[in-house]
Amino acid sequence: MGGREANVVLLDENGIRSDGRKVNETRKVTIKAGVLKNASGSAYIEFGGNKILAGVFGPRDVHPKHMSNPDTGILRVRYHMEPFSVGERKKPAPSRREIEISKVIKEALEPAVMLEKFPRTAVDVFLEVLQADGGTRCAALDAASVALADAGIPMRDLVCACASGKAADALILDVNNEEDQAGQADMPIGYMPNLGKITLLQLDGVLTADEYKKCIELGLEGCKQVYEIQKNALREKYFSSGDKD
C-alpha cells in the first residue's frame, strides 16, 4: 500500500532501520480491550502506525441458515480497510487481498476458539483498519484475539502475531511498510504461546533454509512480546490494575 519509495535506506551502517529501530525490535504496540459498547467484545490496537478496531458479535444464530453446522459453531471474519486508511483512497468494496486476509485470520483463530460447544451458531469478527502502515494482518489478528476473549468466547489460548522478514540482507523483526515494499522477505506469524503452536505462517519473498529457521525464531520472539501486551490489555479491563496475578 502507498507505493514504493526510491532511495530509502532500510538499514544503516550501525544496524539501525529506517524508522530508528534495531533489527530485533518491534514497533510500539498498545492495545485496549472493550472499547465498543454495542459489540459482545472489542479491542483497539495501535501497532506502530497501524490503527485497527476489532468487534466481535455472538455466538448468535447463523444467517443464511444453510451456513450453520449442526456439530459446531462457525467463525466468520471480515477484515476491511477503510477508504482513508492508506495514502490513496481505497475502494470500500472487499478486494482480493482483503478476502485473503479475512480467510487467513479466520484460520489462525480457529485452533484457539472452542466453538464446538455452540453448534448451529456463528461468531462474527469485524476488523476495521483505520490506518495502515505495514503488518496489518498481524495487528488485526492480535486485536481479534483480545476481542474474542473480551466477548467471553471460550479459547484454548490467546493468539498473538508478529511478522519477521529480511531487508538489506539482514533478518528483521516486525516489518514496516517501507521494509515490506522494498525489502526481500516478509513472514507474518500467528502463535499460541501457551500451547506452543503456530496458527499462521506466510512467506512473501525468498529465504535460505537457515534464514527461514532464524526468521521463525525471531518472529516467535516478537509474538511473545505482543502476547504480554495482550494480557496486560485484558488485565487492565478485568482486573483493574493488572497486578492481581
Binding site: M114, A149, P154, R156, D157, L158, L195, L234, R235
Partner: peptide
C-alpha cells in the same frame, strides 16, 4: 486469562481444559 496454566493435579471443571497433562483456563 485464556491459555493460563493452572498448576496442580485437579479435575478440569467449568472453563478449564486438560491439555498434555496441563490444566488451562479457557476464560477470563
Amino acid at each position: 486469562l485464556p491459555g493460563d496454566t493452572i498448576s496442580g493435579s485437579y479435575e478440569p471443571a467449568q472453563n478449564v481444559i486438560l491439555n498434555d497433562n496441563r490444566l488451562l483456563s479457557t476464560a477470563i
